[in-house]
């Protein structure tokens, strides 16, 4: 149940790319942080929730061939480090494309997909993935 509650707790940032912007230095953090690691005390009470645009570009990527059993229908899949337009980076799957179409610097946008499924009777975890623009 511990995992289930973390899935539930993180749903707003996983579902809607909700980040925290520091009101002091304007840095944007995803996943959200309660305190800005640069401004420390000066950021207390100034961290604002913001929804990211979901647009960005690929900074690096890898094609995963050795996949866990749950991903066998998606093999091989692309895992990319994406720099979002607002600044933060995140790691996510790039879907609906052949790995050969993926390249450094390509523009991507976020989509809402099934991320994990806990067997046939468990919870379905949803969240962000990306597609090429």
């Amino acid at each position: 149940m511990g995992e289930l509650s973390s899935v539930w707790r993180e749903s707003s940032h996983r579902y809607r790319l909700v980040a925290h912007g520091c009101g002091n230095c304007k840095a944007v953090y995803f996943p959200p942080r309660d305190i800005c690691p640069k401004c420390h005390r000066d950021s207390i009470g100034k961290m604002k929730e913001m929804e990211l645009s979901g647009r960005g570009k690929i900074e690096s990527f890898t094609v995963v061939h050795d996949v866990p059993p749950a991903f066998i229908r998606q093999r091989p899949y692309v895992l990319a480090l994406i720099r979002l337009d607002e600044g933060p980076t995140l790691t996510a799957q790039v879907v609906d494309c052949d790995p050969s179409e993926v390249a450094l610097g390509k523009r991507v946008r976020s989509v809402f997909r099934r991320v994990r499924e806990d067997g046939k009777s468990g919870i379905i975890q949803y969240g962000y993935k990306f597609v090429l623009e």
Partner: peptide, 16 residues
């Protein structure tokens, strides 16, 4: 649909 798409993901994309 892709293997990671279902009625929830399609509904969310349409809603957005």
């Amino acid at each position: 649909p892709s293997p990671d798409e279902d009625v929830a993901t399609i509904s969310v994309e349409a809603a957005r």
